[in-house]
């Protein structure tokens, strides 16, 4: 059997992290092809529904990328995202998703390497965690 290849769904903000991900490409940083990027305008526009739906539908991990504190192009969207995710994590925890399958990361437009490193590390961590148990369980 081939090795488990995690699937990560990423929600990246338009201004910082998406641009950072582009920079990773321009500078040819190599990282695993585990990630599927959804482009949104702001990390503050990531609805908990998206994250939960991704997990329920079998994504092994979810990455939310936003501007560093103080750098949000919409002033404060990243702070709101952080709070929303904190609440969501409390719920996921009770649900039995005890591992960290959801990651919020501040990655600026100039941090291509950080983006690549983040994806690499997350992929490796997810490999250790194994596949999202949702895939085998209740097909909600």
């Amino acid at each position: 059997m081939s090795e488990f290849e995690p699937r990560i769904v990423a929600f990246l903000c338009h201004w910082c992290t998406y641009t950072g991900a582009d920079l990773a490409g321009t500078t040819r940083q190599q990282y695993p092809p585990s990630i599927r990027v959804i482009h949104l305008m702001c990390s503050g526009a990531v609805d908990s529904i998206y994250v939960l739906k991704a997990l329920i539908d079998g994504a092994d991990g979810v990455l939310i990328g936003g501007c560093h504190p103080g750098d949000c192009h919409y002033q404060t969207g990243n702070y709101k995202a952080r709070r929303r995710l904190a609440i969501l994590k409390g719920i996921l925890n009770q649900m039995g998703f005890t591992e960290d399958r959801v990651l919020l990361k501040w990655i600026s437009a100039s941090e291509g390497k950080l983006f690549a490193d983040t994806v690499t590390k997350m992929t490796n961590d997810l490999k250790k965690m194994g596949p999202n148990p949702m895939k085998q369980l209740w097909n909600a």
């Binding site: 719920i91 097909n139 909600a140």
Partner: peptide, 23 residues
């Protein structure tokens, strides 16, 4: 994708989202 899904769908996410809104 999953081999089979429970119908109606969106039962679990309903509880979770309601929780994220109201908890």
């Amino acid at each position: 994708r999953k081999g089979g899904i429970r119908m109606p769908t969106d039962t679990l996410i309903f509880h979770l989202i309601r929780m994220s809104h109201m908890v």
